[in-house]
């Protein structure tokens, strides 16, 4: 199925969980937060959250930023 991850379309297996996606991307040890179709998916639900084709996924982190 196609998922849009951080703005980029990706082909991924059907029935993929949020945990499996994080492992696939090698982000297990990164502190991050996820939004699917503009709704937060808490880390505590990564194991039980399964994606649907066409889901738009944002995976974010904290970086240096303003202040001004």
């Amino acid at each position: 199925m196609e998922l849009v991850i951080n703005g980029k379309p990706e082909q991924l297996p059907d029935g993929l969980s949020a945990s499996a996606l994080i492992a696939h991307l090698g982000l297990q040890s990164t502190r991050l937060a996820m939004e699917v179709n503009r709704e937060i998916v808490p880390r505590s639900r990564f194991d039980s959250h399964y994606f649907q084709p066409g889901d738009r996924i944002e995976i974010v982190r904290a970086i240096g930023g303003g202040g001004q």
């Binding site: 991850i5 951080n6 703005g7 980029k8 991307l25 090698g26 982000l27 040890s29 990164t30 502190r31 991050l32 937060a33 944002e58 995976i59 974010v60 982190r61 904290a62 970086i63 240096g64 930023g65 303003g66 202040g67």
Partner: peptide, 19 residues
């Protein structure tokens, strides 16, 4: 203050982070 931005997928996940 910190900014919230997209994770760079596939790049240097082992680099130190701001945190």
């Amino acid at each position: 203050t910190v900014a919230i931005r997209r994770t760079n997928i596939g790049q240097h996940q082992d680099e130190p982070s701001l945190l």
